[in-house]
Amino acid sequence: ARAALVLPAAALLVSDLPGGPAAGSPVILAWDTVLPGFLLPLAPPVVMASLGLLLAALFKESPVSDLTPVPPARNGEADYSSGVAVCGAVRTPGGAAVPRAVLTLVDAAGRQCGRAASGDDGRFALSGPAPGGYMLIASATGHRPRAVGVTVREATAELEVLLGGPGRLRGRVRTPEGDPVPDAVVTMTDPQGDVVATARSAADGGYRLEGLVAGDYTLAAGAPGRRPGALPVTVVNGDQPPQDIELTGGAVLRGAVRNDAGRPVADARVTLTDNHGEVAGTVLTCEKGQFAFTALAPGEYTVVAAGYPPVATGLQLSGGEHSERDLRLGHDSATT
């Protein structure tokens, strides 16, 4: 088709040139004869090709991604632009805050729909999930990770996540003589003074603390009628040798304060001091003039009663002993 159009144009140009063949010459007549026979067979293919190009240009379709863009995958995350907040705190079983814990909220399809970190006070906040069921995964350095189920409703969800460590500590609470101390409260505190674990001793004095993070702690125990005891301990990951703690004391001192006539003296101040001059306790007598000191360690003491001219008396206590000592207060007749 292109050749058919060019050849007549060339013939016209030749005819227009000076000295070129005149109109009606054999050359021009030949082209007049040849061109119709040459172009007619080529016309249908040319027309069809032109129509095809025109239709293709008019009805060309855009790619599917141009009409319905698909967001790129974000590691399986679900995008929630609005919803209900999930708040709470990450703590140890003993109640101490766990800072810098990482919390991930996963929906029923396993897609991440929220992530946050706890602050220095253990608090965290996740926003955006729609109401429904989720799984909250919490982890922190030195602690065992934990996953909990969360049901998000129309109101803000508040929950507490407990993270323990792999360390364990066990032992017995006993007297210096080796006797067990049952029902003693065993408490462990960290260097900041926060309680990280607590337990009660069994009938044989045994106790067990679980979920401890490796580090240095203070182990303390107390029981009614005994002086509390404390000692430093170091916790390692896993089991470690038993750690016993001794509770001394258990001595009880009771008595009454009376005047010279034998009548009880109420509201008299009674002070107990040890052999180093340290005050072991101070109480006021009741309406019957009675007083009592409990959980005393074995040793020598001095009892001082005031309200009248002071009266003091010395005594010796043994472990577990229950002793009584009455004091008589009176006025000096020379001063009354």
Rank of each mutant, 00 (worst) to 15 (best):
L162K: 13
G307D: 02
Q112F: 00
D194K: 10
A297S: 13
T187M: 12
R227C: 10
A268W: 03
P99M: 09
D79A: 08
S118W: 09
P41W: 00
L253W: 03
S81M: 02
R325I: 07
G205L: 02
G299A: 06
G211N: 11
V6K: 01
V303I: 12
A30Y: 02
E210Q: 14
C87G: 00
K288I: 00
V47Q: 01
D120N: 11
L5C: 01
V47P: 00
L284E: 11
V185C: 09
D239K: 11
T68Y: 13
G171S: 09
V233S: 08
G95E: 08
V84F: 06
A78D: 04
D332S: 08
L327R: 01
N275D: 15
G314F: 00
V70F: 08
T68V: 12
G122V: 07
D32G: 13
G193P: 11
L329F: 00
P41I: 02
L103I: 07
T336V: 11
L54C: 01
D194A: 15
T285S: 09
F124N: 05
T234W: 04
R328D: 00
V213A: 15
D179T: 05
S127Q: 12
P145D: 12
A56K: 01
L209R: 13
R269V: 15
G95L: 10
A261S: 10
V252F: 01
Q243S: 14
D274E: 03
A85C: 02
G76A: 04
M48C: 01
A10R: 08
P45R: 02
A221Q: 07
L163H: 09
V311A: 07
S333C: 00
S15D: 06
E324N: 08
A101R: 07
R254L: 03
A140E: 09
T248C: 04
T151S: 14
G307F: 04
R91K: 15
E321S: 09
A125H: 05
L29K: 11
L13I: 10
T248I: 06
V6H: 00
P44I: 02
A23N: 07
V6M: 06
L219Y: 05
G165V: 11
T189A: 15
G149D: 12
R170W: 08
T271E: 14
Y217Q: 14
Y308M: 01
S323F: 09
R200Y: 12
T141A: 15
V98I: 15
A57H: 07
L51K: 02
A214W: 12
G289T: 06
A199C: 12
L163V: 11
D66V: 04
L212H: 08
P264I: 01
G225D: 10
E158A: 06
A334L: 11
D332R: 07
A223P: 07
T141K: 13
P44S: 05
A268Y: 03
Y80C: 00
A11I: 13
R325L: 15
T156R: 14
L17N: 03
G132E: 04
L247G: 07
V252I: 14
